[in-house]
């Protein structure tokens, strides 16, 4: 294991009777990285998280955080990990500072340090103004901030956040995104699950896509997009309808025979999908220019995480 790797799973498998919840999951996350853990409901995300935080035992395989075995040394894992489950865990009639004080005490932070630490984490999470509010009276967005503050109390190396942006309004989502980036800049390693994929695509260094308990894609976002998006979407912008027709003819001669090449006489564009390489596409552009077609833009349409996710889940389903 590289010294830089903080979270590592190797062939992680979990079975409940005949049901395979997780099958041979192997991932590595480096220090200070944000891993987006994506999958539809029942894909095995929560099972993986439970194993990582020591709340479930794998049937096979191993998982470690900062070199500590998640299965056999659950007590040490608790010190290394800050876990924010998808439920908040409210205690009635407790104020925010009392709530954080309790968890601080539960983590064995000495009283004097704890008083300061509670203020620090409230500030980091942007929740200082809530300190005297009753926890149950907070809005959903406020609770998420308090939950982040709670996970930071014992200064863990790794933060595992289950759906932190779920149910937040757009403004709160932007703030949450900034908060997560701030935590990563503090050197924390983050594992974040989310259904709101555009949110993840903006902050994640790495993405793991899991369906039916199997890891379908893992790596840097751009790499996955390239891996999954074998068919590139290209758009050529021209100056008039005549040029668009001529360009469409040249494109048809150069791409796959079954490729769907669409010329728009109103937008003056030609759109097509191809699996050709960068060199092939460069040759195509050169041919267009040589043929006297005035090309104003030749660009590849970016596939986003949502497209990738849908593409993978559709492939799995088929």
């Amino acid at each position: 294991m590289s010294n830089d790797v903080v979270v590592e799973t190797d062939g992680l498998t979990k079975k409940y009777g005949d049901i395979v919840a997780l099958e041979s999951l192997s991932i590595q996350v480096r220090r200070g990285q944000i891993l987006g853990f994506i999958g539809p409901n029942g894909a095995g995300k929560t099972t993986t998280i439970k194993i990582l935080v020591g709340q479930a035992r794998p049937t096979r395989g191993s998982a470690s955080i900062a070199g500590v075995d998640c299965v056999n040394d659950a007590q040490r894992i608790k010190e290394l990990v800050g876990y924010m489950p998808d439920t908040f865990g409210t205690y009635d009639n407790m104020r925010v500072h009392e709530y954080l004080d309790f968890f601080g005490a539960a983590f064995g932070i000495p009283r004097r340090d704890r008083i300061l630490r509670v203020e620090e984490v409230l500030e980091t999470a942007g929740a200082t103004y809530m300190r005297d509010r009753f926890v149950e009276s907070l809005s959903h967005g406020m609770k998420q901030r308090v939950a982040i503050a709670r996970t930071l109390l014992h200064d863990p190396e790794v933060l595992i956040l289950d759906e932190p942006a779920n149910g937040l309004d757009p403004q709160a989502r932007i703030e949450m995104r900034e908060l997560l980036l701030q935590l990563a800049s503090m050197g924390k390693t983050l594992i974040v699950t989310s259904h709101i994929l555009p949110e993840l695509s903006r902050i994640c260094d790495q993405v793991a896509i899991i369906t039916h308990g199997k890891l379908r894609a893992f790596g840097a976002l751009n790499e996955i997009l390239r891996e999954v998006g074998q068919q590139r979407r290209i758009e050529i912008q021209l100056l008039d309808a005549d040029s668009a027709d001529r360009a469409a003819g040249i494109v048809r001669q150069n791409v796959e025979k079954d490729a769907d090449v669409v010329a728009s006489s109103t937008e003056f564009t030609v759109r097509f999908q191809t699996s050709h390489s960068e060199q092939d596409l460069g040759a195509l552009l050169s041919q267009l220019v040589t043929a006297g077609v005035t090309v104003s833009q030749f660009r590849e349409e970016a596939m986003d995480l949502e497209d990738t996710f849908l593409s993978i889940t559709q492939q799995t389903a088929s």
Partner: peptide
């Protein structure tokens, strides 16, 4: 009145139970 932080030698669950019960 704002409550004090839980003492170092106190069982935090005991204090939490008192504080979270109306």
């Amino acid at each position: 009145r704002r409550t004090a932080a839980i003492g170092d030698w106190t069982n935090p669950v005991l204090v939490k139970e008192f504080r979270s019960r109306r």
